[in-house]
Simulated scan of single mutants.
Amino acid sequence: MTDDSIHPQRTRTLITEDLLLVLFQPDSGTIAGENTLFYVLAGGVLTDLARQGGAEIRDAGIRGTLISAAGDPPEDELLRPMWDYVLQKPRGVQGVLAASGPTLRGPVIERLIERGDLRREKRRVFGFFPSTALVEGGSGRRDELIAAMRAVLVEGEEPTERSAALTALVSASGTLPVLHREIPWSGATATRAKSLEQGDWAAGAAAAAVTRTMIAVVANSLITSAVVANR
């Protein structure tokens, strides 16, 4: 399996999109970790920006780690608002996630529907009241993403840059145990996931090194956000 090609025609799919698709629970039609989802999706966007050369990390000494814009404005409209935000001035990771996350859920769901990964299904509550539910779209992409994560976490396969980033973000969100029916949860699984959060995977390319560093920073912020949200 190549790095960005679960399906060859979808090489421009964002990690942010795959992240929400993995968190979608087909049995219930819900999304795991809704209480911190906007932080998690913003973490995905920041990771996507870094992978495309649009964001970089700066050590600001006593001010901590700051995120600043880099390169040209991203073409993808989902990434542009965050790039514009950090273009104004370097900002802390927690602030970037909080400022960018709240508007992401709807647009990402719409993209997944457009791609056929999810679809809306009309239903009736109590047989009378019309409602709409999200269901799998039949593309098979979620199954393939889960299989790639399971291969890394359970079977010990060396991850690609993309699968490592996706797995690390899911783990940092605190929702990985929710997937236990598809990815068996164990101490070994947790340990492997934590190592990915810390950027501990083999990757020789410069772009992969940037992703590893950004993932470690984002994962730390997501864990902090989850702790605060669940108090």
Rank of each mutant, 00 (worst) to 15 (best):
S68C: 14
L19F: 13
D117Y: 07
E34Q: 12
A172Q: 00
G156K: 00
D18M: 05
A98W: 01
T2D: 07
L19C: 11
T132G: 05
T11Y: 10
T103Y: 03
A147E: 11
D4N: 13
R231C: 13
G140D: 14
E144Q: 10
L41P: 03
I31E: 15
G106N: 01
F24A: 06
P8Y: 06
R212H: 01
E197P: 00
D84G: 04
V227S: 13
L87N: 09
V210W: 07
H7T: 12
A147C: 01
P81T: 04
R181P: 00
A99G: 07
F129V: 15
G101F: 03
L49R: 05
G43V: 05
A32P: 05
G71R: 04
V125I: 15
S225F: 04
L166N: 03
V217L: 04
G29L: 10
L20R: 05
V40P: 06
R105E: 11
T224I: 10
A165R: 03
V45A: 01
V86H: 05
V96Q: 01
R123A: 14
T175Q: 13
A151N: 09
T13I: 11
T224H: 09
P102R: 09
Y85P: 10
L79K: 04
R10P: 02
P73M: 09
E182M: 10
A203M: 07
A60R: 05
A99F: 02
S221F: 02
D84C: 08
R80E: 13
P81I: 06
V154M: 07
L176I: 10
G64T: 14
D4T: 12
R162K: 06
T2F: 04
V96S: 04
E121V: 15
P73F: 12
D72V: 08
P107E: 11
A172N: 00
E161V: 06
